[in-house]
């Protein structure tokens, strides 16, 4: 199977603090990869390195075989091929839902307004948000905002979708509607990297689970293996903590 993203010996420091230490990873097309780990383990930084929002300190990142970490890479072009969704939604408050979704297709991908709106409406309709198209983000619930943010990220047909703790700011009912949408994207074959604390969801949706701690991959493999039969002490500790907090 084709490899969409390949990360080789990635290293990232903030000052003297080492945040990502020798991370290597290959992500095949149509695969769903879930990154788990405690807060501060480097999950978000890892995602931000992939879409070039952070400068890396060593290693290499290849998207479709092309080295996007090389000096002089056209970062706008790389980012236009990667969809990113954040914990805090980050919808543009001055634009309507439809304008939020059509902004990048029109400005970056040169799609005409008509085509962009048609495509956006089709996506909104499919995910039950069609009647919100003309509304503004502040009138939507958190779950609706996050679903719009995901639609905004996939409206440009990215090669890879990064979802960084997209349900962490939501209550359980709203979490469910966002997770349903993500499951649907999986069924369509979207290649995804998901950082999450929702272990039940990780178990259901992941093809591959990666456990990060102290900026290192301590364990990775298929979800039932990783989550039911942890090998390293760090992962046992992490899952134990989640269990006693009632999150597993």
């Amino acid at each position: 199977m084709r490899t969409v993203l390949e990360v080789k010996n990635l290293r990232k420091c903030y000052g003297s603090e080492l945040v990502l230490d020798d991370i290597s990873l290959a992500i095949p097309e149509h695969s769903v990869n879930v990154v788990i780990g405690a807060s501060g383990s480097g999950k978000s930084t890892f995602m931000r390195c992939i879409n070039l929002l952070e400068e890396i300190d060593d290693g290499q990142i290849l998207l479709d075989g092309e080295d996007i970490s090389a000096f002089g890479t056209n970062m706008d072009k790389v980012r236009s091929n990667i969809g990113s969704v954040f914990q805090a939604f980050n919808l543009f408050p001055h634009l309507s839902v439809l304008e939020n979704i059509t902004l990048a297709p029109r400005l970056v991908h040169g799609v005409s307004r008509n085509d962009a709106e048609e495509n956006a409406m089709a996506l909104l309709k499919r995910f039950g948000l069609a009647e919100k198209a003309r509304g503004y983000p502040d009138l939507l619930s958190g779950g609706q905002q996050q679903r719009v943010a995901i639609i905004r990220a996939i409206a440009t047909n990215p090669k890879l979708l990064l979802l960084d703790e997209v349900t962490s700011a939501l209550d359980p009912v709203l979490i469910a509607e966002v997770l349903t949408l993500i499951a649907e994207l999986k069924s369509e074959g979207m290649t995804m990297v998901i950082a999450t604390h929702e272990m039940g969801f990780a178990k259901r949706i992941a093809d591959h689970v990666i456990f990060l701690a102290d900026g290192k991959i301590h364990e990775e493999g298929n979800p039932s293996e990783i989550l039911n039969n942890p090998q390293t002490d760090r992962l046992k500790e992490f899952l134990g903590a989640l269990h006693s907090a009632g999150r597993l």
């Binding site: 980012r79 091929n81 970056v108």
Partner: peptide, 25 residues
């Protein structure tokens, strides 16, 4: 700053981000 970041993550250039996302707000 998250607004600027979200715009850049969508592939908008810095001037597009300024014109369509930062200045209106």
């Amino acid at each position: 700053p998250a607004q600027r970041q979200a715009a850049r993550a969508l592939g908008l250039s810095s001037s597009q981000t300024l014109r369509h996302v930062v200045l209106p707000q």
